[in-house]
Write a protein that binds this DNA or RNA. Structure first.
Length: 262
DNA sequence: ATGACAGGCGGGGCCTGA
């Protein structure tokens, strides 16, 4: 099975590229972030025509996550535990049934955290909630993927110019410590499981020719539970998509697991 | 040091993003 994640930066603006990429990469499950629309406004039919079931957790204007799956959803649950008053649509969990049992998938859009102390506090709190959620789900001992835009540069190897990010919420020590906490719980960063190469990026700013200079950062991640990591065959980044017309500033990341869909 | 792009909203520029 192939599972992918992509921050599309508005799904309605990205339909041509999304449809082209789905046909090219042929993922079985896709986690989308920053769809920037309500559930009603999501272009559901065009994606269903390509053979996907669609689950959406959207909101007006900002944020919003979705899941696309060629297998039917057994369960779908929006929202991250730990704060019932959190109105930002950043988390969508689902279960599908495969030939060898259940597969649990989360599409997540972790807060950026720049701009104010309140925003950084929200980011760190959201990460603490994600760690708590992950700790609880690990007890199920299921193959599970936490995939999405983490807004975390895990190490200096994950930025072309790490010195430019030292005071940024994406790279500050408390941010990186919480990301490490996920790996310490037992999660595997799929890309780093298959490559120690530098210059593996998933985001290039629209400004100042960042993509042409390969001035990128790796902030979109697929984290695998032990039972999913045991099935890991390959992982990759579709960086070429950043060169398409009307691109998102993020590109897709995918993993191949040795699990038969059905 | 600053601005540079892009999208949403809504019909102005402003806010947000990373």
């Amino acid at each position: 099975m192939r599972i992918a994640t992509w921050n599309v930066n508005s799904v309605r603006q990205r339909m041509d590229g999304l449809q082209a990429w789905l046909k090219e990469r042929q993922p079985d499950i896709v986690c989308l972030q920053e769809i920037k629309c309500t559930d009603d406004a999501f272009p559901r039919e065009a994606i269903e025509e390509l053979g996907y079931n669609v689950a959406v957790h959207g909101q007006k204007t900002w944020n919003g996550v979705a899941l696309l799956s060629k297998l039917p959803f057994e369960e779908v649950a929006p929202g991250l535990i730990g704060d019932n008053a959190d109105a930002q649509a950043r988390f969508l969990e689902a279960i599908v049934s495969t030939q060898s049992g259940v597969l649990r998938v989360v599409s997540l859009y972790l807060p950026n955290g720049n701009g104010s102390e309140d925003k950084y506090a929200y980011k760190l709190n959201w990460m603490d909630r994600l760690i708590q959620f992950s700790h609880e789900r690990l007890k199920l001992e299921e193959p599970m993927l936490l995939a999405g835009d983490y807004n975390v540069i895990p190490t200096p190897l994950d930025a072309r110019r790490p010195e430019a990010w030292v005071n940024d919420a994406l790279f500050l020590p408390p941010t990186r410590a919480r990301f490490r906490a996920l790996t310490n719980l037992g999660f595997t960063d799929a890309i780093r499981a298959v490559s120690d190469e530098p210059d593996l990026y998933t985001f290039w700013d629209y400004q100042a020719g960042a993509y042409q200079k390969n001035d990128g950062i790796r902030i979109d991640h697929v984290m695998l539970s032990p039972q999913a990591a045991d099935k890991l065959v390959d992982a990759g980044i579709d960086a070429h998509v950043r060169g398409w017309d009307k691109p998102s500033d993020h590109v897709p990341v995918y993993v191949d697991l040795a699990i038969e869909a059905r």
